[in-house]
């Protein structure tokens, strides 16, 4: 059972919210497919700054970074002195950093509190 996405001729298992089950299933092509499901038409340079940071952080700590860190680090990587605003992230990823950005980066579903 279960849902999947199609990347090229590969089928990748995802959960009911569309998050990839296996970390190693992710690829840049998969990210492009996932982006479409999150109302992101095309992954631009700015998107990749966030996605790459999420993947690097997860590789190191096995957990998604706190949003505040994402805002700070994104600002830094864009060469700004200040952190970017939360709204900036929502403009890039309309469903937000947790659902949108993490999904596209292939991170497991963040467990939020209801």
């Amino acid at each position: 059972m279960g849902d999947f996405i199609e990347v090229g001729d590969k089928k990748i298992d995802v959960d009911e919210d569309g998050f990839i089950h296996k970390w190693d299933d992710w690829s840049e092509d998969a990210a492009n497919v996932l982006a479409k499901t999150e109302n992101v038409d095309e992954l631009t340079k700015e998107h990749w700054v966030v996605v790459n940071y999420l993947r690097e952080y997860y590789t190191q700590y096995k957990i998604a970074p706190m949003i505040r860190l994402v805002l700070k680090e994104t600002g830094k990587r864009l060469g700004q002195e200040k952190a970017v605003s939360n709204k900036y992230i929502y403009e890039l990823f309309p469903s937000g950093p947790a659902k949108g950005a993490c999904k596209i980066a292939g991170l497991p579903k963040p467990t939020g509190c209801v």
Binding site: E16, D17, F19, N39, Y90, P94, S95, G96, P97, A98, K99, K109, P110, T111, G112, C113, V114
Partner: peptide, 19 residues
């Protein structure tokens, strides 16, 4: 199931996923 992640465009809160 516990939690779930759904929402509307531009917002991160307001909708709670239940499956």
């Amino acid at each position: 199931k516990h939690g779930g992640l759904v929402g509307v465009r531009g917002y991160g809160g307001g909708v709670i996923g239940r499956y």
